[in-house]
Simulated assay, not measured.
Amino acid sequence: MSRLVRILGHTVRQQRESRELTQRQLADLAGVSQTAVARIERGERAPGLPLLERLLAAMDVQLAVAVEPLDAHLDAAMADLAARPLADRIDELNLDRLLDRLGDLPHVVSGAAAALLQGAPIPVDAPEVAVRWRDAARFTRWLEAAYGQRWNARWGEFGGVHVDPEEPGEHRWRTRYGEIRAAMCDELPDAIEVRHGERGYRVVPLVEVEVADPRAAALLRRHRERR
């Protein structure tokens, strides 16, 4: 089976199990057979895009496409990250400054940034935080004050679209304090505190990162395989 087919199957299974759905229940919601769901999850069948979109839409999520370095380059990058002090990697992300500037906006560090803070040597493009939908207006005001520009997928650059996370588009912004991404949610996820030096960080536990973030989950699996 191809690596991509395996990743897609694993993603469907993770999303289904996180919602406590059986394969039969997901199949009924998406209007497909239980056998099709089982074969996709086992990586025995490459799902067409329409079928994959139906399965994900039945779970209120959608497919996001990204690219990453080829395996050899990715392994080399992860080996380099593992050999470097975590404090240096936190500094490179400008994480502390960004979190300080968020002030009293309720948030939890999520995604690959949460994995980094828990010691995983995986690449992090930009800090990600979980923010509640009911705090979207406060978050928008913060973004405006920070001269935020939202990622415009149509143009392939920042700017030209409204910063409000309620508006359609990726939850990714460039600000005067660096790039930030947001996982908008109804309630903040359960968090644990990790400490580095004199500072504590509220982060999504690693096991929950793997459920919620397919790309981070794939990188974490690759890290474990390398070990």
Rank of each mutant, 00 (worst) to 15 (best):
residue 28 D to R: 04
residue 28 D to G: 03
residue 29 L to C: 03
residue 29 L to F: 11
residue 29 L to N: 00
residue 30 A to K: 02
residue 30 A to I: 02
residue 31 G to T: 02
residue 32 V to D: 02
residue 32 V to W: 05
residue 33 S to K: 06
residue 34 Q to V: 05
residue 34 Q to N: 09
residue 36 A to D: 02
residue 36 A to F: 14
residue 38 A to I: 01
residue 39 R to T: 03
residue 40 I to R: 01
residue 40 I to G: 01
residue 40 I to Y: 00
residue 41 E to W: 01
residue 41 E to I: 00
residue 43 G to E: 07
residue 44 E to V: 04
residue 44 E to N: 09
residue 46 A to Y: 07
residue 47 P to Q: 05
residue 47 P to V: 04
residue 47 P to W: 02
residue 48 G to I: 02
residue 48 G to S: 15
residue 48 G to V: 06
residue 50 P to Q: 11
residue 51 L to Y: 02
residue 51 L to H: 03
residue 52 L to A: 10
residue 52 L to P: 01
residue 53 E to H: 09
residue 53 E to N: 08
residue 54 R to K: 10
residue 54 R to V: 05
residue 55 L to I: 03
residue 59 M to F: 10
residue 60 D to G: 07
residue 63 L to K: 04
residue 64 A to K: 10
residue 64 A to H: 13
residue 64 A to G: 05
residue 65 V to A: 14
residue 65 V to W: 09
residue 67 V to C: 13
residue 67 V to E: 14
residue 67 V to G: 12
residue 68 E to Q: 12
residue 69 P to H: 10
residue 69 P to D: 10
residue 71 D to A: 12
residue 74 L to F: 14
residue 75 D to K: 08
residue 77 A to P: 00
residue 77 A to Y: 06
residue 77 A to K: 09
residue 78 M to S: 11
residue 78 M to H: 07
residue 81 L to F: 09
residue 82 A to I: 06
residue 83 A to H: 08
residue 83 A to S: 13
residue 84 R to F: 13
residue 84 R to E: 13
residue 85 P to F: 15
residue 85 P to I: 12
residue 86 L to H: 06
residue 86 L to D: 06
residue 88 D to L: 14
residue 89 R to Q: 12
residue 89 R to G: 07
residue 89 R to Y: 04
residue 91 D to L: 12
residue 92 E to P: 01
residue 92 E to Q: 09
residue 92 E to M: 11
residue 93 L to A: 09
residue 93 L to C: 09
residue 93 L to S: 05
residue 95 L to A: 06
residue 95 L to S: 02
residue 96 D to K: 00
residue 96 D to P: 04
residue 98 L to D: 09
residue 100 D to Q: 11
residue 102 L to N: 06
residue 105 L to Q: 06
residue 105 L to V: 07
residue 106 P to G: 02
residue 106 P to I: 02
residue 107 H to K: 03
residue 113 A to L: 03
residue 113 A to S: 10
residue 113 A to P: 03
residue 116 L to N: 02
residue 116 L to P: 04
residue 117 L to E: 01
residue 117 L to P: 03
residue 118 Q to N: 05
residue 119 G to H: 07
residue 119 G to P: 05
residue 119 G to E: 09
residue 122 I to E: 05
residue 123 P to K: 13
residue 124 V to R: 03
residue 124 V to W: 04
residue 125 D to Q: 08
residue 125 D to M: 11
residue 125 D to G: 12
residue 126 A to I: 00
residue 127 P to D: 13
residue 130 A to N: 01
residue 131 V to D: 00
residue 132 R to L: 04
residue 133 W to I: 04
residue 135 D to L: 02
residue 140 T to W: 04
residue 140 T to S: 10
residue 141 R to Q: 10
residue 141 R to S: 13
